[in-house]
């Protein structure tokens, strides 16, 4: 095994654990968004357990890389990553998500839970916020990067395209946006609700450095992030083609799992699949 194989093996295992943790938390909460949490799991895993410079022992270190979850409803997978990384106890995630007095809200809350770099959930705002962080790094001549995860449905918001215009103006090559292109949104498939294609050409036309990858292939994810580390005087966009509900057969590509919690029986069936040999 070479180094990349080792990394991929490690990330595959962590992503599996994060998926299970997120599904357990959503089941306990009796509400939440499994579809978009599972589609983002491999990207989030790669960021927190390989790509990003961050330290749970020094969580507010000024030089840390930032992760902005613009698609705020995907927060169960982010909470799972933070718990797994040691920012807060897994038991807290499994018992308090979405419950009254909890710091882990149904959508990210920066004030209650400052490990969230920003509050989000009202779609379309996170990329602007990430841009502001990138500008601050530029002013302060800091090297940290800002990773911003968007939903593909989310980019129907007009504010996204305002930032699509402004980030290239400021040559923000420290800004790395990732679209979790899982092709689904609440009312159906994105192609039917509001067609986004040609997605790559749109962002290229706005002068972003665009890559398109399979968002469940760690080799491609690692390579794509690696390509973003060079100074190119352009902001980066990774279109990660993903599967909504990835890893659980009965959730995959099924819009009904956008915002529905599994029953305990469905959770157990999902965990069984995720821990089986077939999961990859």
């Amino acid at each position: 095994m070479n180094d990349e194989d080792h990394t991929i093996e490690k990330l595959t295992q962590i992503a599996r654990e994060l998926r299970i943790l997120a599904l357990k938390a959503i089941t306990e909460a009796k509400s939440g968004h499994p579809g978009g949490s599972l589609s983002a799991a491999d990207i989030v895993t790669t960021l927190f357990f390989h790509q990003m410079s961050h330290d749970p022992q020094n969580p507010h270190c000024p030089d840390r890389d930032r992760f902005v979850l613009s698609k705020g409803h995907g927060c169960p997978i982010l909470y799972a990553a933070l718990a797994k990384a040691g920012y807060f106890p897994e038991s807290e995630l499994l018992t308090t998500l979405r419950k009254v007095n909890s710091r882990i809200q149904g959508h990210p809350d920066h004030v209650r839970f400052p490990f969230m770099e920003t509050s989000s959930g009202s779609l379309g705002q996170g990329l602007s916020i990430a841009q502001g962080m990138a500008l601050a790094a530029q002013i302060d001549k800091k090297k940290y990067k800002i990773y911003c995860l968007l939903g593909d449905g989310e980019i129907q918001e007009g504010q996204i395209w305002e930032t699509a215009m402004s980030a290239p103006k400021y040559h923000l090559d420290n800004l790395i946006a990732i679209i979790d292109a899982n092709k689904g949104q609440i009312d159906g498939y994105t192609k039917d609700v509001m067609n986004l294609s040609p997605l790559k050409q749109k962002w290229e036309a706005f002068n972003w450095e665009v890559q398109e990858i399979n968002g469940h292939n760690f080799s491609e994810i690692l390579n794509a992030f690696n390509n973003t580390q060079k100074e190119q005087k352009k902001p980066h966009l990774i279109i990660a083609n993903t599967i909504k509900g990835k890893g659980v057969s009965f959730m995959e590509n099924n819009i009904e799992w956008h915002g529905t919690a599994p029953t305990p029986e469905q959770r157990d069936k999902a965990i069984q699949e995720l821990t089986s040999e077939k999961y990859s």
Partner: peptide, 17 residues
């Protein structure tokens, strides 16, 4: 593009500006 200005300002403020 006022919305983008507002969000960008928030990001700057979250970074100590």
């Amino acid at each position: 593009a006022e919305s983008n200005m507002i969000g960008t300002a928030a990001g700057l403020a979250l970074s100590g500006k």
